[in-house]
């Protein structure tokens, strides 16, 4: 896999990788892509897609408010908190 493409994949997934990881993951992805070649080369024609499992039918919720969780519960796991919000470094506009 080309370094540039690899870097894009790592960047999209927000992974900071060590050089050793770079090498191993690059090789692993190459293996994966080789594995997928038969699929990539298969002529699909206009075969329909199966997006949803069988038996799935439309389901809706009633438009009603139910407050089950306090904001303390929501913020309980926050690594950093400020003024009842999740705190992160100042993000550029």
């Amino acid at each position: 896999m080309e370094k540039e493409q690899f870097a894009k994949l790592a960047s999209f997934n927000k992974f900071a990788l060590t050089p050793a990881e770079n090498e191993r993951l690059s090789a692993a992805l190459d293996t994966a892509l080789d594995f997928l070649v038969p699929l990539r080369d298969w002529q699909a024609g206009d075969t329909p897609l199966m997006v949803y499992a069988a038996g799935i039918a439309p389901v809706y919720r009633t438009d009603r408010v139910e407050k089950i969780f306090s904001r303390e519960q929501i913020l309980a796991n926050a690594p950093e908190e400020a003024e009842h919000c999740f705190a992160v470094p100042r993000v550029a506009d």
């Binding site: 493409q5 994949l9 999209f12 997934n13 927000k14 992974f15 900071a16 990881e21 692993a28 892509l33």
Partner: peptide, 21 residues
Amino acid sequence: CRSRGEAIGETAKCLAMLGSL
């Protein structure tokens, strides 16, 4: 990048990167 880089294992990373591909 550092949180996910440090705390997610290689197999999961491999699968995720393949996913974005």
